[in-house]
Structure formats: structure tokens, C-alpha cells
Design a protein around this nucleic acid. Structure first.
Lengths: 163, 163
DNA sequence: CGTGAAAAAAGTAAGCC
DNA sequence: GGCTTACTTTTTTCACG
């Protein structure tokens, strides 16, 4: 599978618009980009098939779902061996509180973004699901005051090369 | 604006399906949930209007866009005062490399998730956009080996209360 | 509230530049 | 490749249970 894909200005324009609102119709996309609706369909279909577009996801408001508190948990897993980290990752991923999970370089092996109801819920989560596990050597909890989603993801200035 | 919203099993079922694939048609949703397509439309429209559904976002593959390396940057901003952090946040948010930004409790004030082309690009970003700024006291860079999106976001076990 | 059928709009495929 | 046109499916409305 190709590492990168050649994207012309039309593709980039479409991606920029769709990242802002993935429900835009091909007709509206066409009007803004300056090509025919069927061309938009062709382009977007191609972007989907070559893996640039991975999927369409719903963005929900955690607070509206009764998960008004978010936090980042830095976790050290010791010893950091495959037979321990595999089950650890699967277990944490499956928690309803988990949003995203990163495997990182540095002293802390994993970072887990969680959404919980309140502070008591967070304490329960840390104690019952993290520190209670034998392979978890350390958990550092940081609360999230605020979060920003940044601008659209686009290739670095000189357009991406083919591969 | 209400803090939480009453969600019955039909709403939850719809949200679970749509979080997995936001492009599912109301017809398919209806078949799986066991109600009429028009009912699905009503429910989803309501969820959108009451803010549970914030939007439909496209999920892109950063590697395919020539941004094969991702990292998390922990940033200390000193002094941590409004007149300094406002412009800092706006500047970092506007970078094409920035994906998400968190304001956190703890010794590191901000965490920035970035996607760059390669290590040289990351070094340039850290030096030119972060440490070069007077208010940035410290930047700690951690590379991302792997990232997982976790299961669907759902309310805590006893369904959310009204507000 | 949910339903089912009808109207409006969008998505999709084909043929032609 | 992209555009136009015709065709299919979906979305959306609305009167009714």
C-alpha cells in the first residue's frame, strides 16, 4: 500500500471542506470547488479507496452524555513486554471511559484519554482499572481544563510525493 | 444549555451504530434498530439539535498525506497568564501540524498532538514554533509509536439524567 | 411518538467530449 | 480525466394512527 498519494488542489480543497463538515453534498462541494458533482464523487471515491479517507466519524459531546470530566492518564507498564502489554492495551481500549490511547516513547509508556462522570468516577477508574493491574507500575493523572480541535489535516507545503 | 440529555435505548443504539460509521443510511439504521427510517431521522435530528452530536468529521490517514510521524508535545508556558496564553493557544492551533491541543492540570500546562513529515520536520517545528517563543519555558517531546481509537462514547451505566 | 407513502434531493452510473 | 444527462436510492415531509 502506497505511503503517500498525489493530491492535486481539487483533492485538497475537497478534503478541507469535508473535514469541516463531512455531510456536505457532492452538489455543494462541486459549487465551492468549481467542478462537476460527478467529479467530486470520483475524487472522493478515489480518496476513500486509496486510504486517505479512513472513515466518517460522529463527533459527540461527552458532557451531554453525562461524562463531563476528561483526563489524561500516563501509565508505566513494567516489565514492558509483549505478553503483558497486549492484554493491557486490549483491556484499556475496551473500557467505556477510554477515548484514545497512545503508545509513546519516553518514561511513560502509554497515554490514555478518558471521559468520566465526575471526580469520584475518575478515582474509581484509576484505582480499579489501572493501579489494580499488576503490570501497571505507575499512573499519573492530569485533568483536562479545555480541549481544542485544530485546523484541517493537510500535507506539508510542497504537495506529497507518490510512493 | 442542558448539561445532559435523556437518551433512551433507541438513541443509544443509533449513536453506537453511527459512531462506527457515520455514513449509514437511515434505512439501514432503521433495519438494525427496529424502527422506521423516518423515526431514525427524527431521533438523529433531535440529537444534533440538542448538541449531543456536534458534527460529522472525516477521519484521514496522516501517513497518506505525507505526515508519517506523530508526537505529543508537553509545554510549560511561564508566566501562565491570560494575556500570554491566549495568543500562544491561537498560534499553536493555527499550525498545520497541530491536530489537538489540551490545557491541563499539572506541571505541564499544554499538551499538543502534532503530525509531521519526519524527524527533521519535528525538530524544526519544536525549535521554530515552540521553544522560540518567549513564553514557552519548556517543551518535552514524546513520539507516538501507535494510536488506538477506543470504543464508542456512551453514557455511564445508569442512563444520563435530564438537566 | 411512531408509521408509511409521497415528494424532494442526493448519490451513482454511462456515454461523450 | 472531466462534464452532462439520465437513473436509482435516500432523505425528508406530512397526514394519520
Amino acid at each position: 500500500m502506497a505511503e503517500s498519494v498525489v493530491l492535486d488542489p481539487v483533492d485538497l480543497h475537497l478534503l478541507r471542506l469535508l473535514q469541516n463538515d463531512a455531510r456536505m453534498t457532492y452538489r455543494d462541494l462541486a459549487a465551492q470547488v468549481g467542478v462537476a458533482p460527478s467529479t467530486c464523487l470520483d475524487r472522493v471515491t478515489r480518496l476513500r479507496r486509496c486510504g486517505v479517507i479512513l472513515g466518517h466519524r460522529l463527533e459527540l459531546d461527552p458532557a451531554k452524555l453525562g461524562r463531563g470530566l476528561q483526563a489524561l492518564l500516563s501509565v508505566q507498564v513494567r516489565p514492558h513486554r509483549r505478553e503483558l502489554v497486549g492484554p493491557f492495551v486490549e483491556r484499556i481500549r475496551a473500557l467505556p471511559e477510554s477515548l484514545t490511547m497512545f503508545h509513546l516513547t519516553g518514561p511513560d509508556d502509554y497515554l490514555v484519554h478518558v471521559a468520566v462522570a465526575d471526580m469520584a468516577d475518575l478515582q474509581r477508574l484509576v484505582l480499579d482499572e489501572f493501579t489494580a493491574r499488576r503490570e501497571v507500575a505507575r499512573v499519573e493523572t492530569r485533568l483536562i481544563f479545555q480541549q481544542w480541535d485544530c485546523g484541517p489535516l493537510l500535507p506539508p507545503s510542497p504537495s506529497a510525493q507518490s510512493g
